[in-house]
């Protein structure tokens, strides 16, 4: 093909313009995103960080399903008032197992990055059931049906498998026992409870989160998730302690 013919095609079919747009538009994103995939070389690591239990993961999915992220952030900024109000600022490593991240963009309600164990299970259940019973001026919707809806557990192994495929280190053992672990975490007296501790560590919170050990509800899952927020690793508290010791 002659050079003229090539140029004709380039212009006639608008291919030149297409290439120009791609060339101009692709650079910015690429150079900002690509280095983040090597970030683990530089930032603090959290060797003891554990993964979400099946019950907590199910709760996280309910959090996503209900759009909680639209009003609650999970990202404490490096600002004095953020730290004073919500706790040590968030580190990148703390959300490394969060597919997707739930940093949020709006605080119609308060930040939840470190809400875990700040309130009792009973408080959370009452608050989710009807926020205005606990906080009279709250504008949060009531989620009463969570208490009566049974949690679907038969496919939790598939969820864990998909998580492993995107890089979360779930073991074969965890995947095989996913449904049972979800049940056992909210039934600390059941014989299967030891398995949860074995697989996810001693620090795992084992409680009947909704107050009803006999039934595994969506409330159990959501409260289990809220209670573990900010507690998968203590890296953030450590880095602050180190900084203070260094001063």
């Amino acid at each position: 093909m002659s050079l003229f013919g090539f140029h004709y095609r380039l212009e006639r079919k608008a291919i030149g313009l297409t290439i120009g747009i791609i060339a101009a538009a692709s650079v910015g994103g690429f150079v900002e995103i690509a280095p983040l995939f090597t970030i683990h070389q530089t930032v603090e690591d959290a060797p003891g960080m554990r993964v979400y239990t099946p019950l907590e993961l199910a709760g996280r999915n309910i959090y996503i399903r209900e759009g909680c992220y639209a009003c609650h952030s999970q990202m404490i900024r490096t600002l004095r008032d953020d730290v004073d109000r919500y706790g040590p600022y968030s580190l990148a490593v703390e959300s490394k197992y969060d597919h997707p991240m739930l940093w949020g963009s709006k605080r119609t309600g308060p930040d939840l990055a470190r809400i875990g164990e700040k309130y009792s299970d009973q408080w959370h259940v009452a608050h989710l059931n009807n926020p205005r019973d606990v906080v009279p001026v709250s504008v949060m919707p009531a989620y009463g049906w969570l208490l009566t809806t049974e949690l679907r557990t038969d496919d939790l192994d598939l969820h864990l498998k998909a998580q492993r495929r995107v890089g979360v280190p779930y073991t074969d053992d965890m995947i095989a026992n996913a449904a049972m672990d979800a049940y056992a975490q909210s039934n600390p007296d059941s014989p299967q409870a030891d398995g949860v501790i074995k697989r996810y560590g001693k620090a795992t919170t084992m409680r009947a989160f909704d107050g009803l050990p006999s039934k595994l509800t969506e409330m159990d899952a959501l409260v289990a998730y809220l209670q573990v927020l900010g507690r998968l690793t203590d890296a953030a508290h450590k880095s602050i302690a180190q900084a203070e010791a260094g001063q």
């Binding site: 650079v27 910015g28 150079v31 900002e32 690509a34 280095p35 090597t38 970030i39 070389q41 530089t42």
Partner: peptide
Amino acid sequence: MIIEHAFLVGFSKSFGL
């Protein structure tokens, strides 16, 4: 890891200009 983080960051900061 063959690609160094520092190299990528340096490239990102200069190349764009």
